[in-house]
Design a protein around this nucleic acid. Structure first.
Length: 424
RNA sequence: GGAGAGAUGGCAGAGUGGUCGAUUGCGGCGGUCUUGAAAACCGUUGACCGUGCGAGCGGUCCGGGGGUUCGAAUCCCUCUCUCUCCGCCA
């Protein structure tokens, strides 16, 4: 969420910038200003009353010590009325703060200056592309057919065990998963990321910290008996490691990565275009997360983009990097790059990574701050994250692009991890 | 799952109704001494909100929430978590 202070000082700018996201903030901002004014006035009054109360209490204590019981009792009488007033005002104050908070969380993050105008994916800006789109022979097959042909992933079996969208990987299919995860983690380590293995069930506080709650509750699987949520991405546990933390400036940037399975309910988003591996309820992903100094977060965003690009290049997949337009960006992001790889049998671009700078938006909710030696107060840090990478669509593209009558060729970098060169 | 103990500032650890945001030690920061460093000594050392140009002033915070009281770190209720012993177990 945006900070109150920022909204207060830049009300017009907030409204203006959010137009890029096609969000009309005028009414909410005005309500925030009013509620904030009320909050301040209420606090001034209640603080004055409390100060008076504290003064009286001390006085009474003093009188008791001096055994002046009559005077003490007289002073006590004066506190009765004060107490009621304070109680009433405290309630008003709490209500106002709650209302204020409710309003503030409705505002999305401000897009960065470089974010293009636009409403839909059509308006996104291609930054660059790489790799070569393969010319497949007649009779090319989409990955769901190849999967069956080589018996490496079993969707029906997963349906039997759990339900649609929970595939069972078998044999070389399973090994390929393991190879990709190891490859991604090893590359991440070379790039300076510290590997962590977080829990894949998180509590409510963590859900709120990264913004999945309260709005996107329906996206997560909920273990109600213990009130825990299955993570939709490692972003949730990894970023929440820094909830309520004040880092020292020289610890920045913090670079973490984690492999986790990810669970998404994806309610109501099924259809022909999500066949096979294109969309699943459970999938594997390596996520990179950085906590950055505000002055350097965009350099870091670029370095994360470079890291992801390096992974895709090494996998020999044709890709393009896209800067999302205002309308296509997430609620919480200030700038997002999507990576898409070309899946040559479906003849479609598939999103395999999304790399974002949230600036202070997440950090404010998380209360993730840093403090330098010369700083009087801690300041909010910037948080960034990205997929590096999500497996299923990478697998889909590898299968489709590398197919031949002899079988599916494994990209060179994965061969040492797989122990085979061909799925046949 | 059963029984017991506990949760205090970056850490350790006092404090059981009255100027306690909290003794003390360690750590951190600044200084004296030193060619430099260590040691020693001196000083300093939390977060949040409001108010003020500012020095400052006021308020809140001793795991979370509620209560008793003029007054709560301290008493009561409740929730969460941690530790010890027993049971179970990868």
């Amino acid at each position: 969420m945006l900070t109150l202070k920022y909204i207060e000082e830049n009300a017009a700018l907030v409204v203006e910038r959010l137009k890029v996201k096609h969000f009309d903030a005028a009414a909410i901002v005005q309500q925030i200003q009013e509620a904030n004014q009320q909050r301040k006035e209420t606090q001034a009054r209640v603080d004055a009353l409390k100060a008076e109360m504290n003064r009286l209490s001390n006085e009474i204590g003093q009188l008791f010590k001096e055994k002046k019981m009559d005077e003490a009792n007289r002073a006590k009488m004066k506190t009765v009325e004060l107490k009621d007033e304070i109680k009433a005002l405290d309630t008003t104050f709490a209500d106002t703060e709650a209302k204020l908070n409710e309003l503030v969380v409705q505002l999305p993050n401000l897009p960065h200056q470089l974010v293009p105008e636009g409403r839909t994916a059509e308006d996104n800006l291609e930054i660059r592309s790489g790799g070569i789109i393969p010319q497949l022979p007649e009779g090319k097959k989409p990955h769901w057919d190849l999967i069956q042909q080589y018996d490496i992933i079993d969707f029906e079996l997963g349906t039997k065990l759990t339900g649609a969208g929970f595939p069972v990987y078998k044999g070389k299919g399973a090994k390929l998963q393991r190879a990709l995860i190891s490859f991604f983690l090893d590359e991440g380590e070379k790039a300076g990321f510290l590997e962590v293995q977080p829990p894949i069930l998180v509590n409510e506080d963590s859900g709120f910290g990264t913004g999945q709650l309260p709005d996107k509750e329906g996206q997560m699987y909920h273990a109600t008996a213990d009130n825990l949520y299955l993570v939709p991405t490692a972003e949730v546990p990894v970023t929440n490691m820094y909830r309520d933390v004040i880092l020292s400036e020289d610890q920045l940037p913090v670079k973490n990565m984690a492999y986790t399975p990810c669970f998404r309910r994806e309610a109501g988003s099924w259809g022909a275009h999500v066949r096979g591996l294109n969309r699943l309820h459970q999938f594997d992903k390596v996520e990179i997360v950085e906590i950055a100094h505000p002055d350097h977060s965009y350099e870091i965003l670029d370095s994360m983009v470079a890291h992801v690009e390096n992974l895709i290049s090494k996998l020999e997949l044709p890709y393009r990097i896209i800067r999302l337009c205002g309308g296509d960006m997430s609620f919480t992001s200030a700038m997002t790059y999507d990576f898409e790889v070309y899946s040559a049998a479906q003849e479609r671009w598939l999103e395999v990574s999304s790399v974002s700078n949230f600036e202070t938006y997440q950090a404010n909710r998380l209360k993730c701050r840093y403090k330098g030696k010369d700083m009087k107060k801690p300041e909010l840090a910037h948080t960034l994250n990205g997929s590096a990478l999500a497996l299923p669509r990478i697998v889909a593209a590898i299968l489709e692009n590398n197919q031949s009558p002899e079988g599916i060729r494994i990209p060179k970098v994965l061969v040492p991890y797989c122990g085979f060169e061909l799925i046949s």
